[in-house]
Lab assay of single mutants.
Amino acid sequence: TFEVERIVRKKIVHGNTSYLVKWKNYSSKDNTWETEDDIRTKYGDLVDDFEK
Rank of each mutant, 00 (worst) to 15 (best):
K10L: 05
K52S: 11
D48K: 10
I7M: 01
V21E: 02
I39M: 15
W23D: 02
K29W: 12
K42I: 09
T32A: 03
T41N: 10
T41R: 13
E36D: 06
E5Y: 03
N25M: 06
E51T: 05
E51C: 04
T41V: 13
Y43S: 05
Y19A: 01
E34W: 11
K10R: 07
K11T: 07
D49R: 10
F2M: 15
V47P: 02
F2I: 13
W33L: 01
K52R: 13
Y19K: 00
R6K: 15
L46H: 05
F2Q: 14
K24R: 10
T1E: 13
E34I: 15
G15P: 02
T35V: 09
V13A: 08
S27F: 06
V13G: 04
V47T: 04
F2L: 15
T32L: 02
K10M: 05
K52H: 09
K42C: 14
D38H: 11
S28I: 07
I7D: 01
L46M: 12
D48T: 08
R40F: 05
S28V: 09
T32M: 02
I39G: 01
K22M: 08
T41Q: 13
S18E: 11
V21D: 02
D48W: 06
D49L: 14
T1Q: 14
L20T: 01
D45R: 10
I39K: 00
S18N: 06
V47E: 01
S18Y: 15
I39H: 00
W33M: 01
F50C: 03
T17W: 06
Y26T: 14
R9E: 11
T32Y: 01
H14P: 02
V4W: 02
K52Y: 07
Y43I: 04
N31T: 09
D45T: 12
D48N: 09
K10W: 03
N16T: 14
K42Q: 11
T41Y: 11
L20N: 01
D48P: 04
N25D: 12
T32V: 03
D30E: 13
S28Y: 12
K10S: 07
T1K: 14
V8C: 12
K24D: 04
V47C: 04
V13E: 12
D49T: 09
I7N: 00
D45I: 09
D30R: 11
N16P: 00
R40L: 08
W23F: 04
K10A: 05
R9Q: 11
G15W: 02
D38A: 13
T17F: 04
I7V: 06
T35P: 12
E5R: 00
I39D: 01
D49H: 10
S28H: 13
N31H: 10
Y26G: 12
T32E: 02
V47I: 13
W23Y: 09
N31S: 10
K11H: 06
R9N: 12
S27N: 09
K22I: 05
E36M: 06
E34L: 15
H14C: 14
S18T: 11
W23S: 00
V47A: 07
G15L: 04
D49G: 06
N16G: 08
E5M: 03
G44H: 09
W23N: 01
S28T: 08
H14S: 11
